[in-house]
Amino acid sequence: MEKIKIGILTVSDRASQGIYEDLSGQEIRKVIDQYTNNRCDFVYLIIPDEEALILEKLINLSDVEHCSLIFTTGGTGPAFRDVTPEATEKACQKMLPGFGELMRTESLKQVPTAILSRQTAGIRNQTLIVNLPGKPSAIEPCLKAIFPAIPYCVDLLEGPFMICNPETIQIFRPK
């Protein structure tokens, strides 16, 4: 079974300063560990809401670390310092807006303010980059909604073959 390298990039001024613990990044790892049977090698970073730094880290995780997947958390709202989607768009050659659309649809079942979220996803070379919300309780519902398409997307990018746990997530690969 192939190993998969996954970047987790938490974008938060306060978490990067140690003001509070990064629960969202930890939640991403926990959910991915439940979903996949592959051995995962996680590269985990916490940085402030600085567009140039986010862009630099996304490029490094893709081009130097060779992550097949990168999940960001935080910086997707309407506030002035929320710039994760802008950095993601600059890092990617192709955007996949369906990921953000589905995450917002799922989140709207919980809170009406989900419409303010600007999550997106895109492809940089052979890496799928997905912006997740910054709220820890929103991570699992959003991943549950989008993850069924992720292994096939990684296949199309010629990444490692992901084998998922059918007891925790049902993925889809066309025949």
Results as ranks from 00 to 15, higher is better:
residue 155 D to I: 07
residue 126 Q to D: 15
residue 80 F to Y: 14
residue 23 L to W: 00
residue 56 E to Y: 11
residue 37 N to P: 03
residue 44 Y to M: 08
residue 172 F to C: 03
residue 149 A to V: 14
residue 1 M to A: 14
residue 131 N to E: 05
residue 99 F to L: 08
residue 125 N to Q: 13
residue 93 Q to V: 06
residue 21 E to W: 06
residue 47 I to F: 01
residue 46 I to E: 14
residue 46 I to L: 11
residue 31 V to A: 07
residue 51 E to S: 04
residue 67 C to S: 09
residue 104 R to M: 14
residue 53 L to N: 05
residue 103 M to K: 06
residue 140 E to I: 03
residue 30 K to G: 05
residue 64 V to Q: 13
residue 38 N to Y: 12
residue 12 S to N: 11
residue 41 D to C: 12
residue 25 G to Y: 09
residue 114 A to D: 05
residue 65 E to F: 03
residue 133 P to W: 09
residue 141 P to I: 06
residue 138 A to Y: 02
residue 92 C to S: 07
residue 58 L to W: 03
residue 93 Q to I: 04
residue 80 F to V: 13
residue 80 F to R: 12
residue 108 L to W: 04
residue 85 P to F: 11
residue 71 F to N: 01
residue 117 S to G: 03
residue 170 Q to R: 15
residue 160 P to A: 13
residue 12 S to R: 04
residue 39 R to I: 12
residue 105 T to G: 03
residue 41 D to N: 13
residue 113 T to D: 00
residue 2 E to K: 15
residue 40 C to Q: 07
residue 135 K to R: 09
residue 131 N to Q: 02
residue 108 L to Q: 12
residue 96 L to F: 13
residue 23 L to Q: 09
residue 120 T to C: 10
residue 118 R to A: 02
residue 161 F to E: 14
residue 50 E to K: 15
residue 120 T to L: 09
residue 118 R to I: 02
residue 58 L to S: 00
residue 105 T to Q: 10
residue 3 K to D: 13
residue 10 T to C: 08
residue 141 P to H: 12
residue 101 E to W: 02
residue 85 P to Y: 12
residue 92 C to E: 03
residue 61 L to F: 13
residue 89 E to R: 13
residue 172 F to K: 13
residue 104 R to E: 09
residue 154 V to E: 06
residue 168 T to S: 13
residue 161 F to P: 01
